[in-house]
């Protein structure tokens, strides 16, 4: 199990890598979404990733409303946002749940693909 701070650091790292990839800003300029990152084994350790005009920001706490909810245990989420594991593996074995439309789920995966190039 990861700690809330570890997960926060992983998300911040993810946001920094996103910002360092200019193609992502162009790609997502019209894709305004609120993403709720919800660890299943930590209390009060929810986070919100907000994509607006291609810019990704990170906030502590759960959003009022979200288009995507990324749900898994804290260890999986931390590994995932650090890029230590591909999101597909935990998604396929049921550890990772993405509550969103198929198109949004695909877009999120493509973002990780462009950040880590796998």
């Amino acid at each position: 199990m990861a700690t809330a701070q570890e997960l926060y650091d992983a998300l911040r790292d993810f946001a920094e890598r996103y910002a360092a990839e200019p193609r992502l800003k162009v790609m997502n300029r019209d894709w305004n979404r609120v993403i709720h990152v919800a660890p299943t084994d930590l209390e009060d350790a929810d986070f919100t990733l907000t994509l607006k005009d291609g810019v990704l920001t990170l906030q502590r706490g759960a959003p009022q409303a979200a288009q995507l909810v990324v749900r898994a245990d804290s260890e999986t989420l931390t590994d995932l946002f650090y890029g230590d594991i591909s999101p597909t593996e935990p998604y396929m074995d049921g550890r990772l749940r993405v509550e969103a439309s198929e198109e949004d789920t695909m877009r999120l995966d493509v973002i990780t693909l462009m950040i880590w190039g796998e």
């Binding site: 199990m1 700690t3 701070q5 650091d9 911040r12």
Partner: peptide, 10 residues
């Protein structure tokens, strides 16, 4: 990694 790991600096 693991339970109890402390905060990590960037």
């Amino acid at each position: 990694r693991g339970e109890g790991a402390g905060p990590q600096e960037d």
